[in-house]
Design a protein around this nucleic acid. Sequence first.
DNA 1: CGTCAGGTTGACGCGGGTCAAAATGAGTGG
DNA 2: CCACTCATTTTGACCCGCGTCAACCTGACG
Lengths: 239, 239
Amino acid sequence: MIERHLTRIRARHALSADEEQVVRGLLADTRSVEARRTVIREGERLEASTLLLDGLMCRYKDLRNGQRQVTELHVPGDFADMHSFTLKRLDHNVQTLTDCVIGLVPHERIQRMTETHPRLARLYWFGTNLDAAIHREWEVSLGKRWAAERTAALFCEMHVRLGLVGMADPDGYGFPLTQTELAECLGITPIHLNRTLKELREAGLVEFRSRYVSLLDLPRLRSMADFDENYLYLDPDPL
Amino acid sequence: MIERHLTRIRARHALSADEEQVVRGLLADTRSVEARRTVIREGERLEASTLLLDGLMCRYKDLRNGQRQVTELHVPGDFADMHSFTLKRLDHNVQTLTDCVIGLVPHERIQRMTETHPRLARLYWFGTNLDAAIHREWEVSLGKRWAAERTAALFCEMHVRLGLVGMADPDGYGFPLTQTELAECLGITPIHLNRTLKELREAGLVEFRSRYVSLLDLPRLRSMADFDENYLYLDPDPL
DNA sequence: CGTCAGGTTGACGCGGGTCAAAATGAGTGG
DNA sequence: CCACTCATTTTGACCCGCGTCAACCTGACG
């Protein structure tokens, strides 16, 4: 089950046999969590980081008025909160969107890894910096793109990220979110997202139905989103 | 001049005399850069990280249509791009907003530091995770807050961050941005920002004039922004 | 066949974008 | 000290994207 995590790392960096063993040794425990459970609450003190092995999760922040903004989606192989290793408590919540399998990685094991395997430490540092890059791209979407462009950009991002761990087809992928959840990622109301999806569908760009995203015309979809996958760092320099 | 950087670190973590010497030794060179110069361009290969010693800088991303979104502001003492140590090329640009003094820290020195001083490595990792936390809060602002709330939130954030390095008064701070630049942070047009500033001023909350932010009623300003400074991690756990 | 979550559509209003133009203010040169 | 310039701020008019409120539809499930 940790294979997807190794796949994710290897998509960007080589791993020696020794390093692979250390990575495998990080996992202290795995557990199943059903859909829509908040796994990590803002402010609580954490002693372990959560590795997503299967399913989809998200980071979100609540507002006083009951609304929430999702700040990142997680696909299998992602660490949901490697950053809690240094921060110890988070400024946001982490929730499952679907039924999930998660792995727990005690901070003390990460600590030991940073001391014995500085290159691995650097790879995981890279990983949190990649999260930040995704946050920045979402800032651009939320700040400057119209609803349709924004929606297109997210569909493009998820296609690449799911593809990296072998969970996407060339022209689509399973994506079991409700329209309400998707709208919370995009900073628009579910109603307006529904209209936007209709617009994208009728333009022959993308269709989102029964938990599956069908990419009807990927080149035009990427173009309308002004999608540039460089922010996902698919070809980093070798370390 | 590196004092502000030490102050910034010490605001959150203790530093031993030995560690302080290592931090001081990171700086290979300092230079002056005039206002509105792009110091780091998206995609270029980097061999050193940039430490902001004096002045204001920002990270921004360009869009195809010529618009841009600022994704973070930097105050003196901040690393503008510690994340380039692991990413090697950035997904965004970095620019001076005012005349600045910057310090250059070769990646090889950071590399050596991670091997000899893992605790310092962890502090700098913390620093990049703090940047990500700021990105997340901006995502919330851009996605969910009205223009006035969003503007109030940014004024609150900058008050705290500038205050940490001794550059804010209890009821205001110097903030030499144009309204256009501020609007690029907030994801609204300069014209609408101008109307929003008028609204905040007439409500007796905050005034932004001649490069100075006057906090007329900080409690109400924080309240309207739903400002919760936890995301700035002012009291992290000791490492 | 009833129930309920989630998806869809319509009507209407407001926040904020857009275009145009005037006012203000910091420099600069005469 | 004044005239001129150019960036920046400010205001007005108009319109559209998206929020809001209210129904209605659909499909999964017991």
